[in-house]
């Protein structure tokens, strides 16, 4: 018998603290599988952000740093500029990246910092109990939008891939999802490409991964994967926004 699926070496044995059915754990595994497959574990430094994944430094089996809320891209910049030989990635949620850390992510992307960002979008602040996030859907109820997100009052959800894609410099931007096996397989492909571009020292790479939050959405894990498909995917289209090849050939993104 040949084992064809097991825990990647780049994931520690520590059981994860995430709620049952939360797809953070899947995304962690995809990153770890990519680190294994590209043989990067021993020269990678991951940056854990503040949010549900605040303890991810216990799960990624490589050197890690814990950033303060929203600042992971700045910490990553510091590491990459200090030691360009290292592979650096940040693992951030929507509150961390799109709210308090918006300036940091936009400027890291615009400088074209050669590290990889794994951005998990589950439309809420999970760790603190389900408050509204920049990515909360119109009408979505959270603990700080008890009557549902009123777009007339606080605007529409933020689409990070589209924002970063409007910048000239960042080379690889793709949005994927982790709610179905098919999406998960495609998500891994994107994460792998992102890290490959970094290995080649080519460009800033950004993968936004739609993710579920059963606890704070008040849904069972499976229903949450369906809610994501029916509500988030239409608003956050799953596609590639930029690749360095296109930008270099004066493709659709070069301007």
């Amino acid at each position: 018998m040949k084992t064809i699926f097991k825990r990647p070496e780049s994931l520690t044995l520590t059981p994860m603290h995430y709620c049952p059915g939360c797809t953070h754990g899947i995304i962690h595994r995809l990153v770890a599988e990519v680190l294994d497959e590209l043989d990067l574990r021993e020269r990678t430094v991951g940056i854990a952000s503040v949010g549900c994944s605040v303890l991810s430094y216990n799960y990624f089996n490589c050197d890690m740093q814990e950033a303060s809320h929203g600042r992971a891209p700045a910490v990553a910049t510091g590491i990459k500029r200090a030691r360009p030989d290292l592979i650096v990635f940040t693992y951030q949620g929507d509150g961390d990246l799109a709210s308090i850390g918006m300036a940091e992510i936009v400027h890291a992307a615009n400088r074209g910092e050669k590290f990889t960002v794994v951005f998990v979008n589950n439309t809420v602040y999970g760790m603190t109990g389900g408050q509204m996030a920049p990515t909360t859907m119109p009408g979505q109820v959270t603990t700080t939008t008890p009557r549902g997100r009123d777009v007339d009052d606080i605007g529409y959800p933020v689409r990070m891939c589209e924002i970063l894609a409007s910048l000239r410099t960042p080379g690889f931007i793709e949005r994927v999802a982790a709610n179905t096996p098919q999406h998960i397989i495609r998500a891994k492909r994107a994460i792998k490409k992102a890290f490959q571009y970094q290995v080649e020292g080519r460009c800033f790479s950004f993968v936004e991964c739609l993710s579920t939050c059963p606890t704070n959405w008040g849904l069972s894990p499976y229903k949450a994967t369906q809610w994501l498909e029916e509500n988030m995917v239409p608003y956050y289209p799953l596609k590639n926004f930029k690749t360095p090849e296109e930008s270099e050939e004066g493709g659709k993104n070069a301007d």
Binding site: V45, I47, Q65, A67, S68, R71, A74, V75, A76, T77, G78, I79, R81, A82, R83, L86, A103, E104, V106, H107, R111
Partner: peptide, 23 residues
């Protein structure tokens, strides 16, 4: 390596990262 950051908030966290990487 010299970098002008987007804010001093970012600067302090770049310091954290670089110092944490041993330089």
């Amino acid at each position: 390596s010299f970098l002008q950051a987007e804010s001093e908030v970012a600067v302090s966290n770049m310091l954290y990262g670089a110092a944490g990487a041993g330089v």
